[in-house]
Computed example of a mutant assay.
Amino acid sequence: MLNSDLLPSLLFKINENQLALEAAIMELSNWVEARGATDIADNIRGALDTIDKNEEFIKLTLAVLMAPE
């Protein structure tokens, strides 16, 4: 397998890790909010919005990269 063939798979795995981290951080923000630190939870969710905003572009780009030629 050529190194260039590995790039789409690598990017896919990085994206999976990013989404898993997003889910874990969201759980932590819920935990923080439940303990009364709503301002911190809001800040966390604001930062996570970037992941949400970029997710569709990342998925579409990965689909193009992984499509057979």
Rank of each mutant, 00 (worst) to 15 (best):
A41V: 09
E56Y: 02
D49H: 07
E16V: 05
S4L: 08
E55G: 01
D5L: 10
N54E: 14
N30S: 08
T50I: 15
E55R: 07
D42G: 13
E56M: 03
L62V: 01
T50A: 06
M1Y: 05
I51T: 15
K13H: 08
A23M: 11
A20K: 10
I25D: 04
D39H: 14
T61D: 01
P8S: 03
I58D: 02
E27D: 11
L65T: 00
L28N: 12
L65N: 00
L60M: 08
Q18A: 02
P8N: 04
W31G: 01
D52V: 05
N43L: 10
P8T: 03
L6T: 04
A47E: 14
M26S: 13
A24E: 08
V32H: 03
S29F: 06
E56D: 13
L7M: 08
I44W: 11
N15E: 08
N54V: 04
I25L: 12
P8K: 02
P68A: 05
M26A: 13
D5N: 07
S9W: 04
A34I: 07
E56K: 09
E33K: 07
L10S: 07
M66Q: 14
L6S: 12
T61N: 04
F12K: 05
A67S: 11
E55V: 08
K59R: 14
F57Y: 04
M66F: 00
F57I: 00
A41N: 14
L7D: 01
N30E: 07
F12V: 06
M26I: 02
